[in-house]
Design a protein around this nucleic acid. Structure first.
Lengths: 209, 209, 209, 209
DNA sequence: AATGAATGAGGGTTCATTCAT
DNA sequence: TATGAATGAACCCTCATTCAT
C-alpha cells in the first residue's frame, strides 16, 4: 500500500512536471522568454504559482529543463553514433540533417530557447555555479561530436584542411540562424527542401577539391 | 530671420536625434534591449524622458532608427555595386566579407538589435502598421542584392544550380548566427580568421564541381 | 502493553517537541524571527512541516514554548529565593546578576525572542485568547519578585523611597536594552565586565544616600 | 515665472515627501516594520506605488528618513550644548530628560524604528556602503556627546570612576528598553513620572559616594 | 500521527508611458 | 517644445497554512 502510494505520487509529480514544461514550451513559442511569466506558466499548467516553485528553483531553472527535454532526441542520436566505423561525410550529413530537422520541427521553441539563453546574462553562468560557463549547455555533447567528425574528415583528406572547431562553430552559427528564421516565419519555401539545401551548402563547403 | 531660425531648429533637432540614437547604441551593447530603459536613454543623451517621446513614437521606434543607421554603410556599399560587370564569385565574396566584418566590428550592437527585433512580437509589425511585415527591414536591399548575385552565378554556371533565395536565406542565417556568437563571446579564435573561414565555407558550398 | 506503548509514545512525542523547540532556538539565533521559516524549522528538527502543526498551533505558538524553556532557569532560581531572610541589596544583586548573565549567555536567542514578541501585534494576545495580555509572559514571576525585593529594600531604608514597580520597570527596560545590544554585537567591551558595570549602576541608583 | 514654477515644484515635492514620511510613521506605529508595506505606504500617502520609488531608493531608505526626521530635535538640542561651561550632572540630566521625553512622546514610532533597525540585517550596513557599520546612525552624535559628558563628570570627580563608554552604553540600553516598554503599552504609571524616575536612577547610579 | 505537495495572497521592485507645467 | 514627477500594471519570488494520502 505504501509502495503503491509512493508510485502514485511519483506518477502525479511526473505529470505535473511534464505539464509545467509543456506549458513553458507553449508560452515560449508564443511569447518568447520575456512574455513567459510565472503567472501564465502556472495558469497554463493548471497549478498555482507556488507549485511552480516547488518544481523549479526559479524561472531560469525551468528553461534549462525545457532545453534538456527538447535536445534529448538529438543528443541520444549523437550518442549512438559510432565514430570509428562511419564515413565522415555521411556521418556529418546525418547529424546535420537530424539537427536541422529537429530545428524545423521545433522551430519556435528552439529559437525561443536559444533566445532566452543569450538574453539572460546570468542564465549561462548561474544554472550551476560550480560548473564552468558553457559546460552545462545541453547541446554541448552534440557540438563536440560534430567537431570530432569534422576532424576525422580533415585527417582522412575528404575535407579541406580546416580548423574543426571553427568549422563546427560556423555550422552551429548557421543552425541557430536557421532556427531563428524558422521561428520568425521568415522562410517561405518548404521546410524540408530548405533544410537539405542548407545541409548541402555546409558539407560541400567542407569538401576537399 | 524666420528662415534662419528654422534652420537652426532643424540642426538642433538633428543633433538631439543623433544623440538619442547614439545613446541607445551604447546602452544596447552594454546591457541589451531589456536593460536599455527609457530613463537611461534620456540620461545618456542628456535630455529628459519626455523629449525622447517627442522624437520617437515609443521604445521600439528608436530601435528601428538604430538599425537603419548601422546598416547604412553596408547598404551604401551594396547599392554601389555594379551587378552587370563583376564576377559573381568575387562580388559575393566582397559583399559577404563586408557584411561579416561589419558584424564583427559591431558585434554586440548588431546582436542586441537582432535580439530585440525578434524578441518583441510586435516590433516587426508596429513600426508602421500600414506596411507589410518584413518590407521595412533595413537590410532588405542587401539581402536582395545577394540573392541576385547568386542568381547570376547560377546562370553563368559558376555556382551550382541552387535556388538563389534559399542560398541567400542560408547565408543570412549564418550571418545572424555568427553575430550572436560574437556577441555572446562564444568565439574563442581570432575574429578575422573566423570571418574568412566562414566566408570560404559558404562560397565553396555554392561553387559548381 | 497499552500502558508501555502509551509511555513510549509520550517519550517520542516529548523528543519531537524538544527537537522542534531546539530547532527554532537555533534558527532564531541565526536568522531572527522573520528568517525562521516553517520549512526550515521542520527540516532542522527532522520532521515534516505538517508535523510541526501537530505539535504547535502556529508559528507563534512555538515561540512561546521557546521563551518558556529559556527562562526556566532564572524562574527556578527566583522561585528558590527566600525573601524573608536575605539582605535586599545582596538579593537584588544576585537576581540582577543572574538575569544579566543569562542574557549574556543567550544573547541572540533572548533578543530574537523579544524581537519577535513585540514585532507581532497578535503574538501577545493570541497565544491563549482567553487570557489577559501580559499575564502569561514567562518572565512575569521573575519581575514580580524583583519588585518585591525592591519594596523590601525601600521599607528597610536601604533603598531610596522609590516606587518599586517603577524601579523594576526601569531595571527590566535596561535588561531588555542590554540584551538587544549584546545581540546586535554593539557591545565592544568584555561581556562580563559590562554586565557587572550595568548591575552596579542600577543598584547604586537605588541606594539611599 | 520659471523661478516661481520651480519654487512651486519644490514645495509640492516637499509636501509629497513629508506626506510619505508621515505615512510611514503612522504605519510603523500601527503595524511595525514588517506590516508597513510599500502598497500601504503609497495608499496612505495618497500617491502611487511608483511614486514612492521616485522619492526613496527602497524600503530601507524610507526608514532612514523617518529616523532622521524624528531624531532631529534631540540632535539639534545636543548640538547646542556647550560642553565647556556646564555642570556635567546638570547637563546629563538635561540630555537624558530630553531623550526620554522624546521617547515618551514618540513612543511607538521610536520603538518601531529601532525595531526595524535591528530586525533587518542589512539595514545597519547598507544605507551607505561606503560608510562603516554604525557610523551613519542618526543618533550617533547624541550618544557621543553623552559619553563625553560622562567623561567630564568622571574627570571632575562628581561621577564614580566608571568607563564612560560603558556607562553610555548602559544608558542607551535603558533608553531603548524604555522606548520598547512605552511602545508595548507595558508602562502603567504616568509617563512623565516614570521618565524622571528612570533618569534619577541612572544619574544617581553614576554619582560618586 | 505523519507527510509534504499545493496553495495564493502578498512581498519589494521595475519601467514604459502619460501629462500638467 | 521640453520637462520629469506620477502612474500602475506587471514582474519574480516567499512562505504560513491546509489537506489528501
Amino acid at each position: 500500500m505504501a509502495r503503491l502510494s509512493a508510485k502514485k505520487k511519483a506518477v502525479l509529480e511526473r505529470m505535473t512536471r511534464d505539464s509545467l514544461i509543456s506549458a513553458v514550451e507553449k508560452l515560449l513559442q508564443e511569447d518568447g522568454w520575456k512574455g513567459t511569466t510565472m503567472d501564465r506558466i502556472a495558469k497554463e499548467a493548471g497549478v498555482s504559482k507556488g507549485t511552480v516553485y516547488n518544481y523549479f528553483k526559479d524561472k531560469r531553472d525551468i528553461l534549462f529543463s525545457v532545453m534538456e527535454r527538447n535536445t534529448e532526441e538529438i543528443r541520444e542520436f549523437v550518442r549512438s553514433v559510432d565514430l570509428g566505423k562511419s564515413d565522415p561525410v555521411e556521418l556529418l550529413r546525418k547529424i546535420v540533417d537530424k539537427t536541422f530537422m529537429d530545428l524545423y520541427e521545433k522551430r519556435k521553441l528552439i529559437s525561443a530557447t536559444v533566445q532566452a539563453y543569450y538574453e539572460d546574462k546570468d542564465l549561462r553562468r548561474n544554472i550551476d555555479p560550480d560548473q564552468a560557463c558553457h559546460e552545462d549547455h545541453p547541446m554541448r555533447e552534440v557540438r563536440k561530436v560534430i567537431a570530432e567528425v569534422i576532424a576525422m574528415g580533415v585527417k582522412s583528406g575528404v575535407f579541406r584542411p580546416i580548423e574543426p572547431a571553427m568549422a563546427e562553430a560556423a555550422i552551429n552559427a548557421m543552425t541557430m540562424g536557421v532556427a531563428k528564421q524558422f521561428a520568425a516565419g521568415m522562410v517561405s519555401f518548404p521546410g524540408e527542401v530548405y533544410v537539405y539545401t542548407v545541409r548541402d551548402l555546409v558539407i560541400r563547403g567542407l569538401l576537399a577539391d
